[in-house]
Nucleic acid binder design. Structure first.
Length: 483
DNA sequence: TCTGGGGTCCTAGGACCC
DNA sequence: TCTGGGGTCCTAGGACCC
C-alpha cells in the first residue's frame, strides 16, 4: 500500500453502448443494448437508459428483450471500439510509461512512475484533466478511481460511475471496505461468495475477522491467502505494462445444436483455420492445441495435445484438432465448439528444428489419416459466398444517400438510417437486401469528422430532438428487433 | 427464447526423473 | 525387499474477469 493515491484506474462508462450512441445520433438518450443478437446471444453492454429496465451485462439477450423491448439491439463493432480505445490509451501513456490495459475500456496507470507529485490534490487534478481530455478526444465519458493500491483504485472507479472521480485516501480503506459485501473484492465471484456465505461470511470485515487459516481452509491456498490480504486492504501488486498473450482461441456457439458428426468436424476445421490466422497475425506460434466442446446440456469439456515444438502451420493444427475430436463423444448434440493454442512462443530461428519435427510428425499422421474415408483433416473447404448479412448496427454507404447504418433487416429488405456522428438524427429508408447501390462501410470517427470539422464533441450539446418513448424510439425498436 | 467470446490463474493427479 | 520426497511437465476442469 502506497502512502499516496498514485494508482489510477480508468473505466469507460457503458463503453460499447456509449460508442454506438456517439456514432448514431438517433440513439442518444435512448436504451441501447450491444451484444449477441441471435437466439443464444448475451448482452455485452447496456446503456444507462437500458439499465433502468434491469438489463445487465451477461444477461441473455432474449431476457433483455422482454425487459426492454423498445431498445436498439446492436451487434458489436470491435473495429470502432478499438479505434476509440487506442485514442484513450494514448492519453494514458501521456501520463506515465506504466500503463496496464485490462481490456479495450479499462486500464491501470502508475502515476508515481509518471512523475506526478504523490499528493491527493495533484493526482485528483491529473484525473480530472484526463477525463476532460478523453471527452474531447472521443466524445465519451470515463470514470476514474485513485488509490494507493490496484484493488482500491478499481473499487474507487466503480464508485465513481458514471462520469465521476473518486479518491480513496490511504489510511481510510479498512473503514471504507469493512461494510461492503464480499463480492466487491476482485476475485470473489458466485462460487466463492457462496462458499463464504455458508461459513457465515458476508462482508469484507467478516472476511478479515475469519482469519487467513480459515479462508485457506475454505478456498484453497492461493485464493484464501489472497483474499485475506485484500480484505485487509493489503495489495502490493505492481502496475505491469504490456504482457504478451499466453494463449489464443476462437469459439462459436451455434443457433441450433450440431448433431451431425461430419458437420462437427468441418466446423472445428474452420475454427482451427481462424485460430491459426490470429496466431500468425500476432507473429506467434504455439505448442499446445486445445479443443473445447459444449454439449446440449451446457456441460463443457476440453481436450489438449502438446506438440514436440511450437507451430503456426494450419495443417499441423488441423491434424491435432482432428485427433482430439476422436476422443470426444458428440452424439447428444453440441452447442459450442472452440479451438485454441497455448504455450505461445515468438517464432524465431531457434524454433526451426522443433518446427521440422512437428512437420514430420504431421506428415506421418496425415498419411495415416488419408487412408480411411475422411480427407476431412486435409484441405479446408473454400469459403462459400454467403448472401450478404446486414447485421444491425453495421456501417453502410449508399450511392445516393451517403453514410448510414443498418437498423434492421428481414424478408429480403434492409432498413438503413442515414446519419453520421456529427449530424442531426437522420431519416430511415428501406432497400432490397441485394440493392447494388448499398455496400458495407467503415466506422466514421466520433469526433473531428464531418463537413464542419472541429465541432463540439461535448455530449451536453448533442441534439436531444428525440425523446425516449417517442416515435423514433418505438419504431427503431421494432425494426431492429425483427430479423 | 437461458446461459457469448476472449482471456487469466489455480488445483490436482499421474508420469517421469533424480 | 514394497512403501521417501521433491521437482517438472502434461492434462482436465473450474473460477473469475471484461
Amino acid at each position: 500500500m502506497r502512502p499516496a493515491p498514485t494508482i489510477l484506474h480508468l473505466d469507460m462508462d457503458a463503453f460499447y453502448a456509449s460508442a454506438e450512441q456517439a456514432a448514431k445520433p438517433s440513439l442518444r438518450g435512448k436504451p441501447v443494448i450491444v451484444g449477441g443478437i441471435g437466439p443464444r446471444g448475451v448482452v455485452a453492454t447496456a446503456s444507462y437508459e437500458a439499465r433502468v429496465f434491469g438489463v445487465r451485462s451477461a444477461m441473455p439477450t432474449a431476457q433483455a428483450r422482454r425487459l426492454c423491448p423498445n431498445a436498439a439491439y446492436l451487434s458489436p463493432r470491435f473495429e470502432l471500439y478499438r479505434q476509440v480505445s487506442e485514442k484513450v490509451m494514448e492519453l494514458l501513456h501521456a501520463l506515465s510509461p506504466l500503463v496496464e490495459p485490462l481490456s479495450l475500456d479499462e486500464a491501470f496507470v502508475d502515476l508515481e512512475a509518471g512523475g506526478v507529485a504523490p499528493e491527493a490534490d495533484a493526482v485528483r487534478a491529473v484525473g480530472e484533466r484526463l477525463r476532460r481530455d478523453i471527452r474531447e478526444a472521443t466524445g465519451l465519458t470515463g470514470s476514474v478511481g485513485l488509490a494507493g493500491a490496484k484493488m482500491l483504485a478499481k473499487i474507487a472507479s466503480e464508485a465513481a460511475k458514471p462520469d465521476g472521480l473518486v479518491v480513496i485516501e490511504p489510511g481510510t480503506e479498512r473503514e471504507l471496505l469493512g461494510p461492503m459485501p464480499v463480492r466487491t473484492l476482485p476475485g470473489v465471484g458466485p462460487a466463492t461468495a457462496e462458499a463464504l456465505r455458508r461459513a457465515g461470511i458476508h462482508t469484507v470485515a467478516e472476511t478479515a475477522e475469519a482469519g487467513e487459516d480459515e479462508l485457506v481452509r475454505l478456498l484453497g491456498k492461493a485464493h484464501g491467502a489472497g483474499l485475506y490480504a485484500m480484505a485487509l486492504g493489503q495489495d502490493d501488486r505492481p502496475v505491469v505494462a504490456e504482457r504478451d498473450a499466453k494463449s489464443i482461441s476462437v469459439e462459436d456457439t451455434f443457433e441450433v445444436d450440431l448433431t451431425d458428426r461430419t458437420r462437427v468436424r468441418t466446423e472445428l476445421m474452420r475454427l482451427a483455420e481462424r485460430c491459426v490466422q490470429r496466431l500468425r497475425a500476432a507473429g506467434r506460434s504455439g505448442r499446445t492445441v486445445v479443443i473445447k466442446v459444449r454439449n446440449y446440456d451446457f456441460s463443457t469439456l476440453t481436450r489438449s495435445e502438446t506438440l514436440r515444438g511450437p507451430t503456426d502451420d494450419p495443417a499441423v493444427v488441423r491434424e491435432a484438432v482432428a485427433r482430439l475430436l476422436e476422443t470426444v463423444d458428440t452424439t447428444g448434440g453440441v452447442r459450442l465448439l472452440g479451438v485454441g493454442v497455448s504455450g505461445l512462443a515468438d517464432f524465431t530461428q531457434e524454433d526451426l528444428f522443433a518446427q521440422l519435427a512437428t512437420e514430420q510428425e504431421a506428415q506421418e499422421s496425415a498419411r495415416a489419416a488419408a487412408e480411411p474415408a475422411g480427407a476431412e483433416g486435409g484441405e479446408p473447404e473454400p469459403e462459400e459466398e454467403l448472401p450478404r448479412r446486414w447485421s444491425p448496427g453495421l456501417d453502410v454507404v449508399h450511392d445516393d444517400y451517403g453514410a448510414g447504418w443498418v437498423q434492421g433487416s428481414g424478408v429480403g429488405r434492409v432498413t438503413v438510417r442515414f446519419e453520421q456522428p456529427w449530424s442531426a438524427p437522420g431519416r430511415v429508408r428501406t432497400f432490397a437486401v441485394d440493392d447494388p447501390a448499398l455496400r458495407p462501410g467503415e466506422p466514421l470517427p466520433l469526433v473531428g469528422g464531418g463537413p464542419g470539422a472541429g465541432q463540439s464533441s461535448d455530449p451536453a450539446t448533442w441534439p436531444k430532438s428525440l425523446s425516449p418513448g417517442g416515435e423514433a424510439a418505438s419504431d427503431s425498436g421494432e425494426e431492429i428487433s425483427s430479423r
